[in-house]
Amino acid sequence: MLRVEGLDLFYGDAQALDGVTFEVKEREIVAVVGANGAGKSSLIRTIHGMHRPRAGSIRFEGRDIVGQPSHRICELGIGQVAEGRQIFPSLTVLENLEMGAALRRARAQEKASLERVFGLFPRLAERRRQAAGTLSGGEQQMLAIGRCLMGCPRLVMFDEPSLGLAPIVVYDVFEVIRRLNREEGITVVLVEQNVAQSLRFADRGYVIENGRIVMEGSGPALLADDGIRRAYVGL
């Protein structure tokens, strides 16, 4: 579904991504794990058209999307739940969700999408008139996911959805992502620092270090790797 090959990204002279190659198949959950600053967010933002790579290709369903502006990439069905949630704090929950249906592909289904999001997250329905900034961290993360779903994406990239959340809430967020994948067939790219949990959860994983993919494999296989256990899992 998504194929990234030899992606190089520079911020000025500093190289953020170095020949990144990875692939996501339809209906898969793929985790890209690595330490802070390894290039995970850069990767997502580059796929989403927010940075222009110096070299490499990004193909979505066979079509090269490098150089396309973000809104076009969204129209193709690639959604993003950005790091730190990025909700609009002074707007209400409902307005935040409506903002998610800005895409042409999503406008006609706005009502149905709203029902679907409220079905997934009853808490958001209860608080629809409340300013989004007054929600708890976990609720804000749910709102960010719901808002992304309003755009009817087929592939969603999650950037550190567990960041700053209590362990029990992290569990809920991961559960929601799993449901979206299983029940709605949404393909998932999960970028995480929370290595153990995301590898346990993903079908396949990639390990990124200093902008380079250094290892790939099935989630359990990577988790069993001694190097990874020592470096990231702390066992």
């Binding site: 989403h48 927010m50 502006p69 973000s70 809104h71 990439i73 969204c74 129209e75 993003q80 950005a82 990025q86 909700i87 609009f88 704090p89 002074s90 707007l91 409506e98 903002m99 998610g100 800005a102 895409l103 808002r147 992304c148 755009g151």
Partner: peptide, 22 residues
Amino acid sequence: GFYWMAIREDQDAAQALGIDTF
């Protein structure tokens, strides 16, 4: 006006939602 509000509040988020910020 709705899109402007999104851009004013958080341009990155607006862009991530597929709003043509430019």
